[in-house]
Amino acid sequence: MAEATATETTNEEWQPKIVMFCCNWCSYGGADSAGMGRFQQPPTVRVIRVMCSGRMDPVFILNAFLEGADGVLFSGCHIGDCHYVNGNYKATIKYKFLKAMVNELGLEDERLKLDWISASEGERYAQVVTEFTEQIKKVGPSPLKPEGVI
């Protein structure tokens, strides 16, 4: 968690804070593979493990934004590979709702993304994270970020 009292002191390039939710069986494994394979990835992502992408509750995502996340990524197994049969279908539906919600709310569309990453796709994991980070850097800090949180 960010220190409420800390202030930005350096002149370095701004680094976004990204919260990423990974399902236990695929995407979290993907994160592991990325680490073991030593694929380059930016230090912008905080990973939170959930058992299945279907467990993703809109509350988690909204809460991440309110806490000051500049972007939220969530990922699970590729369609057809979910270890709980159809959790990722459910995630897809929720994603549609959340996208519509985030759009109406006036947060930039780029701040929320769903992607599928399997346990063996370490390189792809690094790529998704890198691309998303670049995307967030372009849109800048989230307007929902509470004051005093960097």
């Binding site: 968690m1 960010a2 220190e3 409420a4 009292t5 005093g148």
Partner: peptide, 9 residues
């Protein structure tokens, strides 16, 4: 908060 070194959470 700053003056009294309080931390979030």
């Amino acid at each position: 908060l700053t003056a009294n070194s309080l931390l979030k959470g």
